[in-house]
Simulated scan of single mutants.
Amino acid sequence: MIYKIFRTPEWQALRADETTLGAPIDLADGYIHFSTAGQATETAARHFAGVEGLWLIGVEDAAVADNLKWEVSRGGAKFPHLYAPLRLDQVAWAQPLPLIDGVHEFPAGLR
Protein backbone atom coordinates (compact mmCIF):
# COMPACT_ATOMS: atom_id res chain seq x y z
CA MET A 1 0.00 0.00 0.00
CA ILE A 2 1.20 3.52 -0.84
CA TYR A 3 -0.26 6.76 0.43
CA LYS A 4 -1.10 10.19 -0.94
CA ILE A 5 -2.06 13.23 1.10
CA PHE A 6 -4.59 15.50 -0.59
CA ARG A 7 -6.15 18.77 0.49
CA THR A 8 -9.96 18.60 0.53
CA PRO A 9 -10.41 20.42 -2.82
CA GLU A 10 -7.93 18.03 -4.48
CA TRP A 11 -9.76 14.98 -3.09
CA GLN A 12 -13.13 16.44 -4.14
CA ALA A 13 -11.80 17.05 -7.65
CA LEU A 14 -10.60 13.44 -7.93
CA ARG A 15 -13.99 12.20 -6.78
CA ALA A 16 -15.81 14.44 -9.27
CA ASP A 17 -13.49 13.92 -12.25
CA GLU A 18 -12.54 10.31 -11.43
CA THR A 19 -8.93 11.09 -12.37
CA THR A 20 -6.19 13.47 -11.29
CA LEU A 21 -2.67 14.48 -12.17
CA GLY A 22 -2.21 15.35 -8.50
CA ALA A 23 -1.57 18.46 -6.46
CA PRO A 24 0.31 21.53 -7.73
CA ILE A 25 3.67 20.05 -6.63
CA ASP A 26 2.89 16.90 -8.62
CA LEU A 27 2.05 18.91 -11.72
CA ALA A 28 5.29 20.87 -11.36
CA ASP A 29 7.41 17.72 -10.91
CA GLY A 30 5.68 15.67 -13.62
CA TYR A 31 4.60 12.78 -11.40
CA ILE A 32 2.35 12.13 -8.41
CA HIS A 33 4.22 11.92 -5.12
CA PHE A 34 3.30 9.03 -2.82
CA SER A 35 4.75 7.84 0.48
CA THR A 36 5.10 4.49 2.19
CA ALA A 37 3.49 3.95 5.59
CA GLY A 38 6.80 4.77 7.25
CA GLN A 39 7.23 7.98 5.25
CA ALA A 40 3.70 9.41 5.40
CA THR A 41 3.91 11.06 8.83
CA GLU A 42 7.15 12.85 7.94
CA THR A 43 5.62 13.93 4.62
CA ALA A 44 2.69 15.44 6.50
CA ALA A 45 4.97 17.19 8.99
CA ARG A 46 7.29 18.60 6.30
CA HIS A 47 4.84 19.58 3.59
CA PHE A 48 1.50 20.02 5.37
CA ALA A 49 2.42 21.37 8.81
CA GLY A 50 -0.59 23.07 10.37
CA VAL A 51 -2.81 22.43 7.33
CA GLU A 52 -6.37 21.39 8.10
CA GLY A 53 -8.74 19.58 5.79
CA LEU A 54 -6.37 16.86 4.61
CA TRP A 55 -7.24 13.40 3.34
CA LEU A 56 -5.09 10.30 3.44
CA ILE A 57 -5.56 8.17 0.33
CA GLY A 58 -4.51 4.53 0.26
CA VAL A 59 -3.62 2.90 -3.06
CA GLU A 60 -2.54 -0.69 -3.57
CA ASP A 61 0.80 -0.38 -5.35
CA ALA A 62 -0.16 -3.33 -7.57
CA ALA A 63 -3.05 -1.22 -8.94
CA VAL A 64 -0.59 1.34 -10.35
CA ALA A 65 2.49 -0.87 -10.80
CA ASP A 66 2.84 -0.29 -14.55
CA ASN A 67 3.50 3.43 -13.99
CA LEU A 68 5.07 3.40 -10.52
CA LYS A 69 8.76 4.14 -10.02
CA TRP A 70 10.64 4.00 -6.74
CA GLU A 71 13.09 6.89 -6.79
CA VAL A 72 15.63 8.23 -4.33
CA SER A 73 14.43 11.40 -2.66
CA ARG A 74 14.58 12.87 0.84
CA GLY A 75 17.54 11.58 2.84
CA GLY A 76 18.40 8.94 0.25
CA ALA A 77 15.14 7.04 0.84
CA LYS A 78 13.20 5.62 -2.09
CA PHE A 79 9.74 7.12 -2.57
CA PRO A 80 6.98 5.85 -4.87
CA HIS A 81 6.22 8.20 -7.77
CA LEU A 82 3.31 7.64 -10.14
CA TYR A 83 4.01 8.64 -13.75
CA ALA A 84 0.39 8.53 -14.87
CA PRO A 85 -2.92 10.01 -13.80
CA LEU A 86 -4.41 8.51 -10.65
CA ARG A 87 -7.87 7.12 -11.25
CA LEU A 88 -10.54 7.03 -8.58
CA ASP A 89 -11.00 3.29 -9.13
CA GLN A 90 -7.36 2.79 -8.07
CA VAL A 91 -8.03 4.31 -4.64
CA ALA A 92 -8.50 1.54 -2.08
CA TRP A 93 -9.70 3.91 0.65
CA ALA A 94 -9.66 7.50 1.82
CA GLN A 95 -10.14 9.04 5.22
CA PRO A 96 -9.77 12.43 6.83
CA LEU A 97 -6.40 13.26 8.33
CA PRO A 98 -7.41 15.48 11.25
CA LEU A 99 -5.13 18.05 12.81
CA ILE A 100 -5.14 17.54 16.58
CA ASP A 101 -3.08 19.85 18.77
CA GLY A 102 -1.03 20.84 15.71
CA VAL A 103 -0.22 17.27 14.64
CA HIS A 104 -1.95 15.19 11.98
CA GLU A 105 -3.61 12.12 13.46
CA PHE A 106 -2.85 9.09 11.30
CA PRO A 107 -4.76 5.81 11.39
CA ALA A 108 -3.56 3.31 13.97
CA GLY A 109 -0.88 1.07 12.53
CA LEU A 110 0.34 3.65 10.02
CA ARG A 111 2.71 5.51 12.32
Rank of each mutant, 00 (worst) to 15 (best):
M1S: 09
Y3D: 05
Y3M: 02
Y3L: 09
Y3E: 03
Y3N: 00
K4E: 04
I5D: 08
I5W: 09
F6N: 04
R7A: 01
T8A: 10
T8E: 11
P9C: 01
P9D: 08
P9R: 08
P9Q: 08
E10K: 10
E10A: 10
E10T: 08
W11T: 05
Q12M: 13
L14K: 06
L14N: 01
A16C: 11
A16P: 10
A16W: 11
E18Y: 11
E18N: 10
T19R: 11
T20K: 04
T20I: 04
L21Y: 11
G22A: 06
G22F: 04
G22C: 06
G22S: 03
P24D: 01
P24Y: 01
D26H: 02
A28M: 08
A28T: 01
G30N: 05
G30M: 09
Y31N: 01
Y31C: 03
Y31P: 05
F34I: 10
A37P: 03
A37D: 03
Q39K: 05
A40H: 01
A40T: 11
E42N: 12
E42G: 09
A44W: 04
A44D: 02
A45L: 12
H47P: 00
H47Q: 08
A49H: 08
A49G: 04
V51I: 11
G53P: 00
G53C: 00
L54F: 08
W55A: 03
I57L: 13
I57F: 02
G58L: 04
D61P: 02
D61W: 04
D61V: 00
A62F: 05
A63G: 08
A63Y: 04
A65E: 14
A65D: 07
D66L: 10
N67S: 12
N67K: 10
L68T: 07
E71V: 06
E71Y: 01
E71S: 07
S73Y: 07
S73A: 14
S73I: 00
S73W: 01
R74D: 13
G76Y: 13
G76V: 08
A77W: 04
A77F: 13
K78L: 15
F79D: 02
F79T: 01
F79G: 00
P80M: 03
P80E: 05
H81Y: 08
L82P: 02
A84H: 07
P85K: 13
L86W: 00
L86V: 00
R87C: 13
L88V: 07
D89Q: 14
D89V: 14
Q90A: 06
Q90M: 13
V91S: 02
A92M: 12
W93L: 10
W93M: 11
A94V: 11
A94I: 05
Q95G: 14
P96N: 13
L97I: 11
L97G: 05
L97R: 05
L99V: 10
I100Q: 15
I100L: 15
I100M: 14
I100E: 15
D101T: 08
D101R: 15
D101E: 14
D101W: 09
G102N: 12
G102F: 13
G102L: 10
V103N: 11
V103R: 15
F106W: 15
F106Q: 06
P107D: 12
A108H: 14
G109D: 12
L110C: 07
